[in-house]
Design a protein around this nucleic acid. Structure first.
Lengths: 250, 250
DNA sequence: CACCGTTATCGTCGGTTTGACGCGAACAAC
DNA sequence: GTTGTTCGCGTCAAACCGACGATAACGGTG
């Protein structure tokens, strides 16, 4: 407590208790849509524990005074080379099980970055490798990640999926000019679910401020499709919900 | 990082850098519905900093190995005397701004407890007082809380409000047998918004598994109302949404 | 008992959103 | 021209919404 802890430390001589300090880390679930798949940046650990095993990028605070979110941005920049200006970076959750690191006590504040256009990560430091990896392969039963990173990744993916329901974020994964089909593919890739092209078209075009028609058209085999640019809206009104069977909630 | 941090520490001699350690606290937004109002447990700080100022209950980890969620449960039990069996306790967010505590670096993992039937808190330790306080009074412009606790409380209240939209939690704040009006009052109190009794009645009675009629009736002035028990459902299908004007989204 | 105020419950109405799906338009390839 | 493909419009029934009228069933008052 801010005040002395009156019950847990009551039996202890007062001068024996000092505020415990633990190592604080940040971990990053950096997600993107690439080559038709939802992918995450994984590094291969070069040192123990879990040497050789894939893990989420992350690290300890650089110094005692570093802001946690700043540490997340710093790690993101270091791992991906991305300049963090136009970045969706949001706190996911803090994982603090006492045994999550076999060496010592570590609690990790996890952040989710779900952004397009990131470059390929470059392995460095104690990371033997760093790559974009398809999420569905990582989340399969047999696949393993270091620490509790598989659970963290699962939480991050669920958060990313639900963000598409309520925000216009999906359009950011499309080229500057894109068709409704391009946009639909982003949804299908992230949700892992096929959507009816006609109903999807009706929904996205009826949300004010989501799509701005450019007048242009593209053709890729069938009837030419109208081109759109991203509109000013950031929230979807109404939302584009997944089928309830896939989420459990709602 | 799990591996050495290759850029932030690159300029430093390798042996000069050790993993920084910070104090980790938990803070609790313990919300309930009491005497017709949404209330939160606040303590009055007995020591600096912010001595004499109201604050959320919370505290540092008892020892280096204590689980974070266990620390939250421990603090909850200490402050309220509640046995934490049937408890909704969920992680809200971690607040880690470097200057949030004027004395030293502290990051705090915040939890939300939104449960009925808690006893009155008993002040102790360095807390000069502990009480249930109406949330709306605390969130007013002129009101102040220690540290960043006002922001934390605002986040907690928003979370609690949205939980009523998607879950059957509100029924837990009603007696074992209750009327639709009892349930509606919970919604109105938490949301700070009046609801149409007729539409509310239609909605809650049409959600499968939410309410189970007991056959009994109560009378409190007007026409006797049917009595219900809580049903097995935990999620609301369809959801009972607030009017969009109050939330911004949707 | 008649009446009234109050609350509960049912029902109606028009509007919106939904999923399922038919259909023709507009292209490319052959 | 024919075929295959994608696109985009339209239809339909079902679900759901907010607004609100109407009635039922009390307790209280005259």
């Amino acid at each position: 407590m801010w005040m002395d802890d009156r019950s847990a430390q009551a039996a202890m001589p007062e001068e024996a208790w000092t505020i415990p300090e633990v190592a604080v880390a940040v971990d990053l679930a950096i997600l993107t849509v690439r080559s038709g798949a939802l992918k995450v940046v994984l590094v291969e650990r070069g040192i123990e524990p879990f040497a050789g095993m894939p893990a989420l990028p992350g690290g300890f605070l650089a110094h005692e005074a570093e802001d946690v979110e700043a540490a997340a941005f710093r790690e993101l920049t270091e791992e991906t080379g991305l300049s963090p200006e136009s970045l969706h970076l949001e706190q996911l959750r803090t994982y603090g099980a006492p045994d999550r690191d076999p060496r010592r006590r570590v609690i990790t504040v996890c952040y989710l970055a779900f952004v397009p256009g990131l470059p390929s990560p470059t392995a460095g430091g104690d990371a033997a490798d760093a790559n974009w990896v398809p999420v569905d392969a990582v989340l399969r039963k047999r696949s393993r990640l270091a620490f509790d990173h598989k659970k963290i990744l699962a939480d991050a993916v669920e958060r990313a999926r639900s963000k598409l329901e309520y925000t216009t974020l999906a359009a950011a994964f499309c080229p500057p000019e894109f068709t409704v089909s391009d946009l639909r593919q982003v949804y299908e890739i992230v949700w892992g679910e096929e959507l009816d092209p006609r109903n999807f078209h009706r929904k996205v075009t009826s949300v004010a401020g989501f799509l701005v028609p450019t007048g242009g058209r593209t053709s890729r085999g069938g009837r030419p499709a109208a081109l759109f640019r991203r509109g000013p809206a950031e929230v979807l009104h109404p939302a584009i919900l997944r089928t309830p069977s896939r989420t459990g909630r709602r």
